[in-house]
Design a protein around this nucleic acid. Structure first.
Lengths: 217, 217
DNA sequence: TGTACATCAGTGAACGCGCGTTCACTGATGTAC
DNA sequence: TGTACATCAGTGAACGCGCGTTCACTGATGTAC
């Protein structure tokens, strides 16, 4: 039973080429935007003919779906790691910094998840499952923070609209905080990643941590 | 001197066609995303041949630049109107609601300004001028709010990095607030417009106003 | 170990498509005398 | 008011390009006896 994941040399080679195709795809998206992804261009860059890629991906859409899946998985892993590395086990600050690091690593990957989606594209089921795992991690961290402020009107509204929490037992104050964390961090991050802060002069890390501090107060 | 803006029938017709081209362009972007804008497709939709559009726009890039310019101008007008309609003259809440209304009116237009830019595209000077007019309006509204909280570390940082305020005399606390308003509203709005809240169950207006209330406190 | 066969990666030609853009042109509209 | 000319909107053909995708094929690699 001590077999490696990819047994035969052929399988090893196959996953290797698949990986390289995806790497080139990310490079291409980083250089020219998500919609500029071209199978032929990837093939040329790898020194292969265009049709060769069809041995590895059924279609262009198939490749994109796989990239999205990888992006979600990567973020879920990052969150899981940040959680397990922190002492308290559910550390919102650790999550936030992990998110920022992950996003800066590859902005295009961040936008593939949280940016404007391709019109008409619908994510497959397993992807939405990973998405709710990510949300669950965030909810854990928010539930761990004691909330002394009185319940907000929006938190009351969430009490009756918590299906997105997918059964998570967090109190509605934590639900509110989770959404706020999400939208605020996304606000700072997406503007920064899109380059809207360039030339403004201030330090974007300080804006990010200012927002985070406000969130933790 | 009582001449109309477009004098001759030919000029009138000309601006009319230009306007229709832009309208179709917006429709097309709304349907298939910003990068899907195609001159030939617009022409076909208008019952004209492709090359005919070159009477009205020098190139595809030229048309896009004009759309961006119009988007900025439209937002600046909306802000100006919201400011002049409110009693105090600089009402942050009025600005926020005006922004949300404007964004929902045409999400694609919002993303053309605040979304991920086309890589390599650089906005012309007059556009950045309108952008800083928008920022100035926001700064006015923020400066009108008395700030009783102690100065934040980030506000202190902004004291030394205020070139983006373009000479606006607002105190650094107002600068901080302006940036916070921008990033937080963008966080909620962009996620909502991109459809990331669909199916989650809660009312996105309430999340928006909750964020706004927090901003005004 | 050698031979026969199956598997499978990759090629090159081809298809149809839509794109942005140019060019020489037709025909209608406006202008000057 | 009529005629000669200039302006200009719009057409159709054409160029070159890159795209996704299919197909029949070659040749190398692995498998079974």
């Amino acid at each position: 039973m001590a077999e490696t994941r990819t047994r035969t040399p052929r399988e090893r080679y196959r996953t290797q080429v698949r990986t390289e195709i995806k790497e080139r795809a990310w490079e291409q998206m980083a250089a020219a935007g998500a919609s500029a992804l071209s199978l032929n261009a990837i093939a040329k860059q790898m020194g292969m003919s265009g049709p060769a890629l069809y041995r590895y991906f059924a279609s262009r859409d198939d490749l994109i779906t796989e990239l999205i899946r990888d992006a979600y998985r990567s973020l879920a892993d990052t969150f899981r790691r940040a959680t397990s590395e922190s002492e308290s086990g559910a550390d919102l600050a650790a999550l936030a910094h992990a998110l920022r690091g992950w996003a800066l690593e590859d902005p295009q990957r961040y936008f593939l998840i949280y940016g404007t989606p391709v019109p008409g594209y619908h994510a497959p089921d397993d992807v939405t499952a990973i998405a709710s795992e990510i949300m669950a991690t965030l909810l854990d961290a928010c539930a761990a923070i004691p909330s002394d402020t009185p319940v907000t009107p929006f938190a009351a509204h969430l009490e009756d609209h918590r299906q997105w929490a997918d059964g998570h037992p967090a109190p509605s104050a934590a639900l509110h905080r989770a959404l706020t964390v999400w939208t605020r961090l996304h606000g700072v991050l997406s503007l920064e990643l899109a380059g809207h802060f360039t030339g403004m002069g201030f330090d974007s890390v300080q804006l990010f941590t200012a927002e985070l501090d406000d969130l933790l107060a």
